[in-house]
Computed example of a mutant assay.
Amino acid sequence: MIVRIMGEGQVKLADSHFTELDTLDDELLAEIRNGDTDGFRRTFHALLDKVRELGEPLPDDSLEPSELILPAPGATLEEVREMLNDDGLIPSA
């Protein structure tokens, strides 16, 4: 799956990594719903770091369609809340 982090670029991520990412996404969703700004910031950055760690960066000039778009690292709790679906940022399979 091709994942875009807004403002950074794209990475190719194996489907096998989504269980690990979904755990962080569930934590993030709970923190957003509870208005836990500190928890949100910590978990959001952990999620982005994990995507960067597990993903293989695509070249900057690559024009692959992104199957998942994640907010930029500086996004606020409110901005991320607007991007959520019922499952969080990462849709359940």
Results as ranks from 00 to 15, higher is better:
Ile2His: 09
Glu53Val: 08
Met1Asn: 05
Asp49Glu: 15
Leu84Val: 02
Arg41Phe: 00
Thr43Pro: 13
Met6Arg: 15
Leu48Asp: 07
Thr76Pro: 08
Arg4Tyr: 03
Glu79Val: 05
Leu21Ser: 01
Pro57Ile: 09
Asp87Ala: 06
Gly39Ser: 02
Glu27Leu: 14
Phe44Lys: 05
Leu47Ala: 06
Ile5Glu: 06
Gly39Trp: 03
Met1Asp: 05
Asp15Trp: 01
Pro73Lys: 13
Arg33Thr: 01
Ala46Gln: 15
Pro71Asp: 05
Asp87Leu: 00
Ser92Pro: 00
Leu47Val: 03
Glu27Gly: 09
His45Gln: 14
Asp49Gln: 14
Leu89Thr: 01
Pro71Phe: 07
Thr76Arg: 09
Gly9Asp: 10
Ser62Asn: 13
Leu48Arg: 13
Leu48Asn: 13
Arg41Asn: 12
Gly39Met: 05
Ile2Leu: 06
Ala75Asp: 12
Arg52Met: 10
Leu89Asn: 04
Leu70Trp: 00
Leu54Val: 08
Asn34Ile: 00
Glu31Ala: 14
Leu68Lys: 13
Ala30His: 06
Gly55Gln: 09
Asp25Met: 04
Leu13Ile: 15
Leu47Pro: 04
Glu82Trp: 11
Leu47Thr: 04
Gly9Leu: 09
Met83Phe: 03
Arg42Met: 12
Glu82Leu: 15
Asp26Phe: 04
Asp60Cys: 10
Glu27Val: 10
Glu67Arg: 15
Arg33Leu: 13
Leu77Tyr: 06
Thr43Ile: 08
Phe18Met: 13
Ala30Phe: 08
Asp38Thr: 13
Arg42Leu: 12
Val80Ile: 11
Leu58Tyr: 10
Pro57Val: 11
Asn34Asp: 15
Asp49Asn: 15
Ala30Asp: 11
Arg4His: 06
Ile69Gln: 05
Gly9Phe: 05
Lys50Asp: 07
Thr37Arg: 15
Arg41His: 06
Arg52Ser: 10
Leu58Met: 12
Asp26Arg: 12
Gly35Leu: 02
Val80His: 00
Ile32Ala: 07
Gly39Ala: 02
Ile69Met: 07
Thr43Val: 12
Leu21Ala: 02
Asp26Thr: 13
Glu64Leu: 12
Lys12Met: 09
Ser62Glu: 15
His17Ala: 14
Glu31Pro: 00
Pro71Thr: 06
Glu20His: 10
Leu21Val: 05
Glu53Tyr: 10
Asp22Trp: 08
Gly7Arg: 09
Arg41Tyr: 02
Ala75Ser: 15
Glu64Cys: 07
Gly55Ser: 10
Phe40Ser: 01
Glu78Ala: 14
Arg81Thr: 08
Pro65Leu: 09
Leu13Arg: 11
Leu29Ala: 09
Arg41Cys: 02
Ile5Leu: 09
Val11Asn: 02
Asp61Leu: 15
Gly74Ser: 09
Asp86Thr: 12
Leu63Pro: 03
Lys50Tyr: 06
Gly74His: 10
Asp22Met: 07
Ala72Tyr: 07
Asp61Phe: 14
Phe44Leu: 08
Phe40Gly: 00
Ile32Glu: 09
Ala93Trp: 02
Ala75Ile: 05
Glu20Tyr: 08
Leu29Asp: 01
Pro71Gln: 06
Leu24His: 04
Leu89Arg: 05
Thr19Gln: 11
Leu47Tyr: 01
Gly9Arg: 05
Ala30Pro: 00
His45Tyr: 05
Leu24Trp: 01
